[in-house]
Nucleic acid binder design. Structure first.
Lengths: 238, 238
DNA sequence: CGAATAGTGTCTGTTAGACACTATTAA
DNA sequence: TTAATAGTGTCTAACAGACACTATTCG
């Protein structure tokens, strides 16, 4: 039996199937804290809880394409750079029906984060306060209230924070959270926000420069009332 | 509208949905090379190609439970320790229909690998020969023939090898590939097989002992014709 | 004793933390 | 000149690679 012949007899409806969604963790460092873009659910189930932007995966749509589409439609972010995070598929994670969700992680500079907040009024920033030393965290509104999260979205956010920490040392994720030109102090602040711990300045500068990932632009920070710092840009490794 | 009320009106059949499967990368170090358990497809599509053991996820079955079930039913492995690897969902990855697959990685000692080969006659070991320096690899039969892989299973295997390499330094994955008691030489051979590069003996020993992950058992290797080595066991960190 | 591997001592180069110091800019 | 931050020099401790050495077991 050839492949073609086989396909003519195949019945794709033979089994009951879960639905598939994508959920997005859209992160920036905002005011020195990792912060995610959340949407308040206004319809059941879990109305009034806060949820990650998400949506169903089309039958003819790649997973990543679905994630990019959701970033555009639900958060107003064009051409988002997304990385697959983890897939969550516990049987009862959604009370409506069986839904397996593929979570994606997107990092952006604070300015893009603010722009998304301004464009889509339903979006709320949630500051993610990391328990010192632990893996837990709390999602808080700008006013400091704890935000109740929908479904298993707390677990997804926790997974995103752990992934971010794990990749910080050896990957480029730090630069994805900064504008194109940045000072070494800003880069250090991003690292400190993700790790939740202060870092040694000379050691940090040496390490970053030795990696060969950043190049000075010759221009300097504007608007500082003191000595302005050199602006660097990210330069993929040679 | 309450959650309960909402659910009474919800139609889970409203959208066409992909199917979800799990595929397993079951790995051991066999004869000094990373090797995976594969099944030869005897029915279309892609008949006569080699595929990862896999199966559909039941509508009332957790993803990991499905992976454990597949390990038992298709590879004869009871109580497999599996870690989620990555989710592959390209639209055309399977010609029959839209299938999104969640790949899982399972590591075992060489003895368990041989036992699985002996119990399930359809299983074939594929040695994964890593391109020196690169991310590519070739799957070869014990006779040295290149094995044609089905669907996107070469990509899945490549992802598994990269994950294994990435976690080797800071996680316990090395011990999952060894029997309960092992010599430092065996541990070093496992690391060398995964990294594809020789390691320095004194440095390796120091590093392993300093991590505090292994404890001497006081017993020694048997059957060696020369000085027998101390047997160690894995000891989760204090 | 000889063969072969187990296991160690030590030198050197690299890297990170700590701390104090100098340099540069705006006001 | 002063305030405040940018940026550097240098000491020290931790750690990895390299190499040569000693230790132990079997036959």
């Amino acid at each position: 039996m050839s492949d073609d012949e086989f396909l003519r007899h195949y019945d794709p409806q033979a089994f009951d199937r879960p639905s598939i969604t994508v959920d997005l963790v859209l992160l920036a460092i905002r005011g020195g804290r990792p912060s995610a873009l959340l949407l308040r659910r206004d319809a059941p189930p879990q109305a009034e809880r806060w949820a990650l932007p998400g949506g169903f995966v089309g039958i003819d749509e790649d997973l990543e394409a679905a994630a990019v589409r959701v970033a555009r439609d639900k958060a107003g972010i064009e051409g988002a750079q997304l990385e697959q995070l983890y897939t969550f598929g516990a049987v009862n994670r959604d009370p409506r029906m069986r839904i397996v969700t593929v979570a994606y992680l997107g990092l952006m500079a604070e300015s893009a984060f603010e722009a998304a907040l301004g464009a889509a009024l339903q979006l709320l920033p949630a500051a993610l306060e990391i328990d010192p030393g632990g893996e837990g965290f709390a999602a808080r509104s700008p006013e400091g209230e704890a935000l109740p999260l929908a479904f298993d979205h707390a677990e997804i956010l926790g997974t995103a924070l752990m992934r971010l920490r794990g990749k910080l040392d050896w990957s480029n994720v730090g630069f994805s959270l900064l504008p194109e030109r940045f000072t070494l102090r800003q880069l250090q602040e991003v690292h400190e926000a993700i790790l939740g711990t202060p870092l040694n300045k000379p050691a940090f500068r040496r390490r970053m420069l030795d990696k060969g990932w950043i190049a000075p632009t010759g221009t300097r920070e504007a608007g500082a009332s003191f000595r302005p710092a050199e602006l660097y840009r990210f330069q993929p490794n040679t």
